[in-house]
Design a binder for these strands. Sequence first.
DNA 1: ATGGGTGCAAAGGATTTGCAACATT
DNA 2: AATGTTGCAAATCCTTTGCACCCAT
Lengths: 146, 146
Amino acid sequence: MDKDEAYQRLESHGIRPSLQRVEIMRYLLSHRTHPTVEEVYEGLSGKIKTLSRTTVYNTLRMFYEKKAAQMITIDEHRVCYDGDIHPHVHFFCNCCGVVYDLMNKRAPSQKRTVTDGFLVEDSQLYYRGICPKCMEEIAKKKAKAN
Amino acid sequence: MDKDEAYQRLESHGIRPSLQRVEIMRYLLSHRTHPTVEEVYEGLSGKIKTLSRTTVYNTLRMFYEKKAAQMITIDEHRVCYDGDIHPHVHFFCNCCGVVYDLMNKRAPSQKRTVTDGFLVEDSQLYYRGICPKCMEEIAKKKAKAN
DNA sequence: ATGGGTGCAAAGGATTTGCAACATT
DNA sequence: AATGTTGCAAATCCTTTGCACCCAT
């Protein structure tokens, strides 16, 4: 149960693997739902009785700064995180608030590059709109109305 | 001073042109600095004595919903708005917090399209890193240290 | 014993909500 | 009158900060 993917991700990004950090990374890697701080906290507070929100905040932020996770600011209300560090497009449903991956879409690479004197450290491509589920819901409601 | 660009932008997007709305749009169009709600409020509260933050919040949000402005969530701490509705890339400086336009970069179009059952209503491409100004500052500090 | 890591409680700050007043048709 | 618009005050909620404690080296 040691030396798993989570542990290795921390090591390879120069992050000391404390118990909390490993568990938070493990949560990120096993929940590909773009969790918020609150969700990670809720998900782990049963397993780590003393866990605090502050630690989750600090840890996720550090994962992002060390490029061990992606920070997603697609939802104006809350930041969420993604353990998948390959470039891919995120879709935010304006209706239900879920963040989806759009794997088929091409996204800019995450490599450090310099453009016009700007040092690019990371990039995010966001789409917003209505997800298939909500589209169906809306269609149902319309059908009922008639 | 009537029927200016701001007024027309509202009309063409189906927004009733109240005094506040026209002024807020005029502010957006004449300040290409990606202002926050607070900045718009500060900038106009001298001109419109009774203006409230609530109105600025509601109005900017509605501009975004009616596609009369872009909503930018690149900064995790605050939302900002852009009167330029042509697709272009935004760059956030992690150091000074300024949001820049990267005009030379290609951005996805803002047209409504359907991809894999997802209805895309708008898209945003964000780069984060260090801006030229801050790069220079850092270089200066390094030079001094030696 | 020293520095890094954690966690509690409090503070901070952006945004929303409820509701009353106001304007406009 | 009816509807849409504005604005104040209060509430909400995400996030940060300060500080003390703890753990490992």
